[in-house]
Design a binder for these strands. Structure first.
Length: 660
RNA sequence: GCCGAGGUAGCCUAGCUGGUUGGGGCGCCUGACUCAUAAUCAGGAGGUCGGGGGUUCGAAUCCCCCCCUCGGCACCA
């Protein structure tokens, strides 16, 4: 038996193509395994806890539960429509999940892997509560940028442990927070260093994940696993604390397995306690750390079975650009894809067939159109349809007693190729294998010319048709895991019970095949449709569509604005900061003084071309140091495609002139 | 700068434990065919395998140096 899981989608936003990059190949993998006769449990569920959900719910006037309900149902629906069929799709706010999480945390406590420690945490006196993670905003202790409680999201990107943030402010009421000492609990991750090093040397999976993890393990810190929240799994023995979301989320793999096993009538302990099954995690590259470091350490600490493989999918690009919701480089599964009336099979094939699972996948509507029209339709669809229609029209019932040995040989080869590729998580190779077989079919049909033979020698034509039918049957079986919906339809036309089929059935020859009138298997994507799809994208790139990610900032008063000392400065000198790639040290005449400002524009501007330029300067920004060089203020720039474009003046003015 | 992943014809890509003329696919050109969703089939043009050096009888493949792209971090105030 094998357990296959997918990283849990966070129930705080809609499904996009980045999600599918993990879920579709996992589903394809499971379907192939089952066709190879493997007994597979396949689980996933919504990740429902954590502060982003609580904060987001509060902002929308909902309870966390209400918000989670919306997105949980959304993901369930998306998976159903894309034929991603989990044995169980759960949610982490469910009772059974809380139960399993508490049990594991208790066990870690009992075994001495958890210790309490007093830490100073941001506390809002007005709201009378501690401010976990995203409830607090302040200054990053490492780089000085504005940061959230758990992550320096606008600056250096570091993960911040509770209590690290400087100058905290309450995100809810905006008042200044203070630090108060409170007892929290830490997991002794550092004790697992040797174990993890050994474990990672044996762990299977895609190289992209393993290489990262091996690098991380060198530098471990104990891990704060409690938070001041009401929403979440309450921490055993501490009513006011919940466990950190990254503790309970992966435990979902276990609790959902329990539910799946209940339904299937198997024993979850076989998988998670006795370790007699393979456990395979499909994840995105962004959560390698959690799956290769935290998770195995927790499992080991609590005496659970360990995952045998971590399969990480590569990143997704949209029209060649790095995936970004705020910049518009995103494809929403429901709004952009399903509502356009496109078959889920097209997208499944695209994701699987574009490139190797661990490489970057570029999504482009034009490539999508080409792959659908040229590969799915012209090669595979055309072969199936021309054979089935020809056979139905001319025979209706085909005796299969003389199938060409060469055909059977080709089918066996394709089958072997698929089996090997599945073993290595190379899903592109599997889909290439059946496409090549379809091409071979077209050549065979073309060379044998049954449409001529039928006029002269119906018996010989019958043999050609039998061989092609066998090939069609094999194709339907081989392509089914990737394109289940269309292949199920085709299977019906040849009287194949596809759900019960195994890969090896592709080489079994029936005595007779009786045919129904075949349907055209796929619908072509016309130019007008492509234009429509591209237009939506382009509008979004140009920023004409209002982002739904809430990227407009809150309203401020004129007084707020007047607190800013913005003025015109003239760049007196500019030089690159030694040893840096992006930083330029500028001396700027701002009227009453010459200011030193460090700016990260070295990749877009050369120092020579800056000297003498008039720029807009924010003069009363708190000083900060970069690479040891002090910067007092910042120069204003627009950002386009990640490049900085400096704001300059329409007419020359004196340095020091105010901006108002 | 460090770490990771890459750089193969206009575009995407296989090969990368060294060995006959570097495979595919898209697009392009020519022809054939008409059973099939103007689908299919045959043929063709198109390559300094990022650059340089080295090891070897032999290198896209191994070693060294350099360049470029992407992602992460150091530093984008």
């Amino acid at each position: 038996m094998k357990l296959v899981t997918c990283g849990l989608p966070y129930a705080n936003g809609k499904a996009h193509i980045g999600h599918l990059r993990t879920y579709v190949p996992a589903d394809v993998y499971v379907r192939y395994l089952r066709m190879l006769g493997e007994d597979v449990v396949f689980v996933c569920g919504s990740d429902c806890h954590g502060t982003p959900i609580v904060v987001n719910a509060e902002q929308q006037g909902l309870t966390p539960k209400q918000l989670v309900d919306i997105y949980h149902e959304h993901f369930k629906k998306i998976f159903a429509e894309l034929d991603i069929e989990f044995d169980y799709y759960g949610r982490t706010d469910a009772e059974y999940h809380h139960h399993r999480t508490k049990e594991i945390v208790k066990r870690l406590i009992e075994k001495g892997y958890v210790y309490p420690k007093d830490i100073d945490l941001a506390y809002c006196p007005k709201c009378e509560r501690f401010l976990p993670d995203r409830y607090v905003e302040g200054i990053c202790p490492y780089c000085g940028a504005t940061a959230r409680g758990d992550e320096c999201d606008q600056g250096c990107g570091r993960h911040l442990e509770p209590g690290e943030i400087k100058e905290p402010k309450c995100k809810i009421c905006g008042s200044k927070a203070e630090f108060r000492s409170q007892k929290h609990y830490f997991f002794k991750l550092t004790e697992f260093k040797d174990f993890l090093e050994d474990y990672l040397s044996k762990l299977r999976g895609t190289e992209n994940a393993l290489n990262y993890a091996k690098n991380w393990v060198k530098n471990l810190r104990d891990w704060c696993i409690t938070r001041n929240l009401e929403w979440g799994v309450s921490f055993p023995g501490e009513e006011n604390l919940v466990v950190y979301v990254w503790v309970d989320a992966p435990i979902g793999y276990i609790s959902f397995t329990e539910k799946a096993c209940e339904n299937k009538g198997c024993d979850w302990k076989e998988i998670w306690i006795h370790g007699s099954c393979e456990i395979i995690h499909f994840i995105g590259l962004d959560i390698v750390y959690h799956h290769c470091i935290f998770w195995p350490a927790m499992l080991k600490g609590a005496d659970y079975a360990l995952p045998s493989a971590v399969v990480a999918s590569g990143m997704v690009k949209v029209e060649g650009k790095t995936f970004s919701k705020s910049r518009g480089y995103v494809v929403w599964v429901e709004d952009d894809y399903l509502k356009a009336g496109l078959s889920p099979d097209y997208l499944r094939y695209y994701i699987v067939n574009y490139t190797s699972h661990q490489k970057d996948l570029n999504f482009s509507w034009e490539v999508f159109r080409d792959k659908v029209n040229n590969e799915i339709i012209a090669t595979l669809g055309n072969f199936l349809y021309r054979v089935l229609l020809f056979a139905w029209k001319n025979f209706g019932e085909v005796k299969m007693d003389d199938v060409d040995g060469e055909i059977l040989q080709k089918i066996s080869e394709a089958k072997e190729k698929i089996e090997n590729a599945i073993e290595e998580w190379e899903f592109k190779v599997t889909s290439d294998a059946f496409m090549e077989l379809a091409t071979f079919g077209n050549v065979y049909f073309q060379n044998a010319k049954p449409w001529e033979l039928i006029k002269t020698d119906k018996e010989v034509a019958g043999r050609v048709v039998a061989s092609c039918l066998q090939l069609a049957k094999a194709l339907i079986i081989f392509a089914y895991p990737v394109m289940p919906r269309s292949m199920a339809k085709m299977a019906e036309a040849v009287g194949l019970d596809i759900k019960a089929c195994k890969l090896e059935d592709a080489v079994k020859v029936d005595e007779v095949v009786s045919l129904k009138k075949p349907q055209v298997p796929f619908e072509k994507i016309e130019d007008e449709k492509l234009d429509e799809l591209q237009e939506i994208m382009e509008k979004r790139f140009r920023g004409e569509e209002v982002g739904e990610v809430g990227d407009t900032k809150e309203e401020i008063t004129i007084e707020d604005f007047q607190r800013l000392d913005i003025r015109i400065g003239k760049i007196v000198s500019a030089e690159k900061v030694k040893g840096s790639k992006k930083l330029i040290k500028l001396i700027i005449d701002i009227g009453d003084e010459h200011r030193q400002i460090v700016s990260g524009i070295a990749e877009d501007y050369k120092p020579e071309e800056l000297e003498g330029k008039l720029v807009v300067v924010l003069a009363n920004l708190k000083p900060a140091k970069f690479m040891g060089v002090e910067s007092r203020g910042m120069i204003l720039a627009a950002e386009k495609d990640g490049k900085a474009i400096l704001l300059t003046l329409e007419k020359d003015v004196e340095p020091g002139t105010r901006v108002c």
